[in-house]
């Protein structure tokens, strides 16, 4: 009711919103639309087809890149989720002055430009004489994913407060039982949401992976970057469309998990740092 009145009063507001949305989404929509275009040329529309999706799945290089991406994403997600959750639990218990410093250091990978992260990791790996490959990409992805998992899980922990754990302790639960039966079930949606974000970030990452991947660890974004140099093909559009759909679904799932189990009052505000 109120918004309807507001838009009546300011006709320019809706036009402005429309233009802004168009600016953001037209490029993405173009990729999706042309992934169904029957012509090889991205300039004109010549009919609807699914064929680029089927040729995509017949392309061995693409399938290999997909398999690399999934291996890296699953491995780095599991490890970073465990480490990020442990960090959130440990930092909550800290009481000394170092606490703010540790939190600041954990936030760093979110703030530091990807290109610097990538470059510094590359230098580190060459200093350690590590061969670039899936392992180095996994380590790199864990490095930045921990921060995101930490942010999400620690805000969930802060929401939970300490009373539930005190109640469990009072009812005879040991520290481990309290964690197992009360803390973990309470923060579980946050842990899963953190894992989904970590997975999405890993699948989508180009910049850092580009620096630390080797010849046999080409991920989907790196494959796309390489093939675009030879011109944009409809298969690439189809691949991008699939990645867009998967990423958006994962983020929606994460948001839904974070919203669950909270009162209506708390709902609405996103916990994601971006």
């Amino acid at each position: 009711m109120k918004t309807a009145q507001a838009s009546k009063r300011h006709p320019w507001l809706s036009i402005h919103s429309f233009l802004l949305m168009a600016f953001i989404y037209i490029p993405v929509l173009l990729i999706i639309v042309f992934s169904f275009n029957d012509s090889r040329m991205s300039t004109s529309w010549s009919g609807f087809t699914w064929k680029w999706y089927s040729t995509l799945f017949d392309n061995r290089t693409v399938m290999e890149a997909l398999s690399n991406s999934l291996t890296i994403a699953f491995t780095s997600t599991i490890i970073s989720t465990v480490l990020g959750t442990m960090a959130a639990l440990a930092i909550r218990k800290m009481q000394n002055r170092g606490k703010q410093g540790v939190i600041g250091l954990l936030y760093m990978p979110i703030v530091v430009p990807d290109i610097i992260m990538g470059l510094s990791l590359l230098i580190l790996f060459s200093q350690l004489k590590m061969d670039l490959g899936k392992m180095t990409v996994i380590i790199a992805h864990i490095t930045f994913s921990i921060s995101y998992v930490y942010v999400i899980v620690s805000s969930r922990l802060a929401n939970m407060g300490k009373q539930l754990e005190e109640a469990a302790n009072d009812l005879g639960a040991s520290s481990w039982q309290t964690f197992r039966f009360v803390t973990l079930p309470s923060i579980w949606p946050g842990v899963i949401a953190g894992a989904l974000i970590a997975f999405t970030l890993s699948i989508d990452d180009f910049m850092i992976s580009f620096f630390v991947s080797g010849p046999n660890s080409t991920t989907l974004p790196i494959y796309i970057y390489g093939s675009v140099k030879r011109g944009i093909s409809p298969e690439i559009n189809a691949l991008c469309t699939i990645m867009i759909v998967v990423s958006v679904m994962l983020i929606i799932l994460a948001q839904w998990l974070l919203g669950r189990g909270k009162s209506d009052k708390e709902k609405g505000g996103s916990l994601l740092p971006f």
Binding site: Q163, L164, E166, A167, A168, D170, V182, P185, S186, G261
Partner: peptide, 10 residues
């Protein structure tokens, strides 16, 4: 202990 805000496990 019965807590002020009950602290029931949700």
């Amino acid at each position: 202990l019965v807590f002020q805000h009950y602290a029931l496990f949700p």
